[in-house]
Design a binder for these strands. Structure first.
Lengths: 194, 194
DNA sequence: ACGACATTCTAGCGGCGCTAGACATCCTGC
DNA sequence: GCAGGATGTCTAGCGCCGCTAGAATGTCGT
């Protein structure tokens, strides 16, 4: 009774991850507009309704992929920050660079995390830990004494997101991203805001 | 022959604008996901295929609405900039504030301009004038002597766009937008980059 | 008045997210 | 060992989407 249900639970969790991975791969190869419930079902070799026994709807699948993405982004930012010298400017620069690299390397994943509508809760008590962890990497680039460091992190993140998404859609020239990054970091870290 | 065709042309242009306006209003009231070709056709009291005699597809309709948006945004930024004192910092602040106000006042229009996929050409030779004009308002906030002012404008715009879109989707708390704006402007205008 | 042309509509294609209800499979208690 | 009920899966289909072919309607120059 118990052992059987455990096995079932394992199989279920396995299939859950199978769906998420398939969705992510499909999105990364062909873009999110190609991720339909039919194609996804065919790819995991189950019929459509099983998707709905795991997820409330398509948005929830996108949300699960996004969560996967945060679990990848957070340690990546962390490693970048720790590898940098302890000068505050260097850490900030390293984290920002790692962020932009992530955005250009995994555009579909990035979209799921920051552009597409999902049911993920941001900036609240029920914010999933990986999500919080990624944001905290930005916060930790600023002095713990400064009680405005969350604000600084929000602005930094906003600027990076804007750069990522506007250059990704061709609204600003994708070439000069490095120059923009240099300027941004120098301005944010440059003057220790009044 | 000529007069008749002129009348036809006029009627056609009139109906073109009717479609664009209807799409915009529908989007502003119910969001873009409610803007379907069927509902739009019903609203302008024509059948679906006439939409396709004016626009190549739905993306082109969104693009036309976006262009409308730029024609509104550009003079708004311009007025804000000219109303501000000539000190560079003040102008930048005024333009940024006007931009964010536009984004929160007209979220659907803003989405069409900057988020949804359209067939508008940015940052190229065939960029429509209103689009270029809006961007130039940011450029003109910086000294004409500095040959990096385009770069500054791109970063400023990116940051604002990030703030607008992340707070609009609840990914950063929508409340502290003013504080973020203060910080951003002080950092960008504060130190005259290296 | 009428043939030629342009315009607009009806009807429908294939695909979407999602779900009801039939069907198979497996565990449990006798 | 087996009936019966719970569990899981599938087939089929609903209402909607963007888009288009071809019929029907109207309009114009001669």
């Amino acid at each position: 009774m118990s052992a059987i249900n455990e096995r079932r639970e394992r199989e279920r969790a396995r299939r859950h991850q199978l769906i998420v991975t398939a969705a992510r791969e499909l999105a990364e190869v062909e873009g999110w507009e190609a991720v339909t419930t039919r194609r996804l079902a065919e790819r995991v070799e189950y019929s459509q309704p099983v998707l709905y026994s795991h997820f409330k709807g398509k948005d929830a699948i996108v949300g699960a992929v996004a969560l996967d993405g945060f679990s990848e982004l957070a340690p990546r930012l962390r490693r970048a920050r720790e590898a940098a010298a302890p000068e505050p400017g260097d850490a900030l620069r390293a984290v920002c660079l790692a962020y932009l690299e992530f955005a250009t390397e995994r555009p579909a994943l990035y979209q799921a995390m920051f552009v597409l509508p999902t049911d993920l809760k941001f900036a609240s008590d029920e914010t999933p830990p990986p999500l919080r962890a990624a944001f905290d990497e930005f916060v930790n680039c600023f002095s713990p004494d400064d009680d405005r460091r969350e604000l600084f992190a929000e602005v930094t993140w906003s600027a990076l997101h804007g750069m990522a998404v506007l250059s990704g859609s061709g609204r600003i020239p994708p070439g000069s991203q490095d120059d923009r990054l240099d300027f941004l970091v120098s301005q944010i870290a440059g003057t220790p805001a009044d």
